[in-house]
Design a protein around this nucleic acid. Structure first.
Lengths: 339, 339
DNA sequence: AGCATTTATGGGAACGTTCCCAACACAATG
DNA sequence: CATTGTGTTGGGAACGTTCCCATAAATGCT
C-alpha cells in the first residue's frame, strides 16, 4: 500500500491550501483563480489522487449511493427495470445497490434498516408491505415502482395494469374466446390483486357475461403456481366446455402452464388459449410462443430514476405519478374460436 | 428531519462516555461492564439510534461495501452467480453493489475508478480485460470469476470448462454424432476461446477424427450470433452430409439457433443435433428442449464470496483457484444417429 | 497486606473531506 | 483618497465514528 495520498498532499505539491484543492474538486466549489486551478489539477494528476467520496459525503451529508430494491432480480421483468434505473442513476454519478427482497418482509426490513443508517441518498423500491407512512418516515427520498400503491403521498411509476389487462382480454375476445378464466396472485393483500381482477370483472361485465367465481384461480406467480394452476384447471368438472382461455397474471406463470398442459396432452393455442403479462424474454421462445402484454420496463426504470433524482434535488416538490401503457405482443398461444 | 441523534446523545442518556457506547456497538470492542452494556442498549433503543456506518468506516478504514462486477446481469448465468455471491456477502454484513460492464472496457474502467476511491472493501469480478497486474494494483482484495484467467496471482472461481466441453461432446458422440461442428466466440482474445476450442480439438483428436477448419464457427454468444451461425451453416456447401451436430458456446446462442433453424424448416434434435452450455432457465422451455451442460452457478457465486471474505480477513493468504464440474442436462436437442 | 495484573472507563486525536468565516488584494466608485 | 464591492485564499471547525493512551477500579497472587 502506498502512503495514502489525500487532499493535503495535493495542496502541498500545488502550493495552495487544502481549501483551494477542495474548491477545485467539488462541482460547485466557489471561485478559484485559473492559475491555482491549473496547478491543482496538475498536482492531482501527478500524485494519482482520487477523492475519497465517503469522507466527502460525511461532511456534505451525501453518499452518492442509491438503493434499488426489487422482489426478484432473477425475474427479467425486475432485472430490466433495475438495470434501466441503474444506468440512469450511475450516469448522474451515483453508485447503485440492487437489493433483493424475495418477497420477504424480513429482507425488506434489513434494507430499510440500512437506509436508516444513512448509507443512501434515496431509494427506488417495490415494497412488499407498501407501508407508505413507514417508508416516508425513513427520512430519505423514495420512489415506488409498481402501481399498486394507491397513496398520493409518494412518487410512483408503473404500468397501467388496468388498461393492459383489458388489452389482453379484448384480444382473447376478438378471437372468439368467450369463457375466460383468470389466474392471479393474491400476494400483498387486496390492492394488487384487485387491479387485474377488477379489470377482469369490469371487462366481463361490459361484455355482458356473468362472472363465474370458479374461473378465478388464485395461485403464486411462479413456475410452481403454473403447475398448480393446471392441476386445478384439469380437476374442474367438464372444464373443456367451461373454459376457452386463461388470462395469466404474469409470463412465468403462463409459460409454466403451457408446459404443464403439454404434459397432459393439451396444446396451448389450439386446445386452450393462454395470455400472459410482462413479455419476459423466454415468452418468445416457448412453443407455442406466448401472446402477452409487454410492459415498458426500460421506460419504467428510467422514469423511476428520473423522479428520484428530481426529488433528491428538491425534496419539497409535489409527489408525481407516472403510468405507462403496455403493448400487446401477439404470438401463438391464443386459439381462434369460431362462434 | 429529527435532530440527528448520534453516539454522543446515546452516551449522554446512558450516562457514559462516547467511547463506551462505541465499544458496545462495535463487534469486538473491548471490555464493557454488564451494567454499562445494559444502559447503553436501553438508550439506543429509546432514542432509536442507528449507527452511521459510513462515518465508522472512515475511521476504521472499512466500508462494508463490496462490488460484484459482471458483464451482463440480464443473462441468467451472471445474474444467478451475482445473486449467490450477494446473498453470502450480505449475510456477513456487507452491502453489495452489482456492476454491469456490458462487455465494455469503458464501463469496467468506471467501476475500477470507483474502487480506487475507497468505496469498497473488495470485489468479485469478471473482467473484460483480464489485466491482472492492473487489478492487483487497485489495492483492494479481488476475486475473479470465470476460469479464463490463467494467472496464479489472483483468487479464481469457475467451471471446469474443459471437462464440461468434453462431457457435451462425449454425449454427442455416444449418440452416433460423428461430424461435430463448434460455434464459439473469440471474445477476449486467445485465452477464453482456447479452452472450449482446445477441448474440442483434443476430443476430436482422441477419437481419431481429423479436424475440419470449416466446421469451427466464430460468432458472438448472443441471439444475433445464433442467427448468424445458422446463416453460415446453411451457406456451407452440402452441409447435411458434413455436419451431424453443433456444439454451441452457450445456451443463448443455441436457443437462437434452434429457432432460426426451425424458420428454415430444420428441426433440432431430428435433423441436426445441438448442445449448449450453461443451462439457463429458458433452455428447458424451448421446443425441443435444449440438451446442455449446467454450470453450478450458485456454487460459483457462493465460492467467490467465500474466497473474498477470506482474503479480506487475511490479505496475505496465498491465491486460491476453485473449479467446479458441470452437469449434463439431457433433453431433446440431440438426435440419435445409427451408424 | 502489598504488588502485579486485568478489566473498565473517559478524553482527545484521527479518518479525509467540506463548510464557514475572516482576511486580503485589487478594481471601481464617489 | 476613502469607501465599497468582488474575487480569491487560508485556517479552523465540523461530520460521526473508532483508535490510542492514561487512569481508576477490581481482581489475583504470593
Amino acid at each position: 500500500m502506498k502512503p495514502k495520498i489525500g487532499i493535503i498532499e495535493v495542496a502541498r505539491l500545488a502550493g495552495v491550501s487544502k481549501s483551494t484543492v477542495s474548491r477545485v474538486i467539488t462541482e460547485s466549489g466557489g471561485s478559484v483563480s485559473p492559475r491555482a486551478q491549473e496547478r491543482v489539477t496538475a498536482a492531482i494528476k501527478e500524485l494519482g489522487y482520487t477523492r475519497n467520496t465517503l469522507a466527502a459525503g460525511l461532511r456534505a451529508q451525501k453518499t452518492w449511493m442509491v438503493l434499488v430494491m426489487v422482489p426478484d432480480i432473477a425475474n427479467p421483468y425486475w432485472s430490466e427495470i433495475a438495470r434501466a434505473a441503474q444506468d440512469r442513476l450511475e450516469a448522474e454519478g451515483n453508485s447503485v445497490v440492487v437489493g433483493n427482497t424475495d418477497w420477504l418482509k424480513s429482507r425488506e426490513d434489513r434494507y430499510f434498516e440500512l437506509a436508516r443508517s444513512g448509507r443512501f441518498d434515496g431509494m427506488v423500491i417495490n415494497s412488499v408491505t407498501d407501508d407508505i407512512a413507514a417508508i416516508n418516515d425513513m427520512g430519505i427520498p423514495v420512489v415506488m415502482v409498481g402501481e399498486r400503491a394507491e397513496s398520493q403521498d409518494i412518487d410512483t411509476v408503473g404500468t397501467d395494469t388496468t388498461a393492459a389487462t383489458r388489452m389482453a382480454l379484448e384480444h382473447l375476445w376478438e378471437h372468439g374466446n368467450r369463457r375466460i378464466a383468470i389466474a392471479t396472485s393474491d400476494h400483498g393483500g387486496e390492492r394488487f390483486l384487485s387491479l387485474r381482477r377488477r379489470a377482469y370483472e369490469d371487462f366481463m361485465a361490459d361484455k355482458g357475461v356473468e362472472p363465474d367465481p370458479s374461473l378465478a384461480f388464485s395461485v403464486k406467480l411462479s413456475e410452481e403456481g403454473g403447475r398448480e394452476l393446471v392441476g386445478s384447471l384439469l380437476a374442474l368438472d367438464g372444464w373443456r366446455d367451461r373454459i376457452d382461455a386463461v388470462f395469466c397474471g404474469n409470463d412465468i406463470l403462463a409459460i409454466a402452464a403451457i408446459n404443464a398442459l403439454r404434459d397432459s396432452g393439451i396444446e396451448a393455442g389450439r386446445d386452450l388459449s393462454l395470455v400472459g403479462m410482462d413479455d419476459i424474454p423466454a415468452a418468445a421462445h416457448t412453443f407455442p410462443a406466448l401472446t402477452t402484454v409487454r410492459k415498458p420496463r426500460a421506460l419504467i426504470g428510467a422514469a423511476a430514476a428520473e423522479l428520484l433524482l428530481a426529488r433528491i434535488r428538491d425534496p419539497d416538490r409535489p409527489p408525481e405519478r407516472r403510468l405507462f401503457p403496455g403493448e400487446l405482443m401477439i404470438r401463438g398461444s391464443v386459439a381462434e374460436r369460431h362462434i
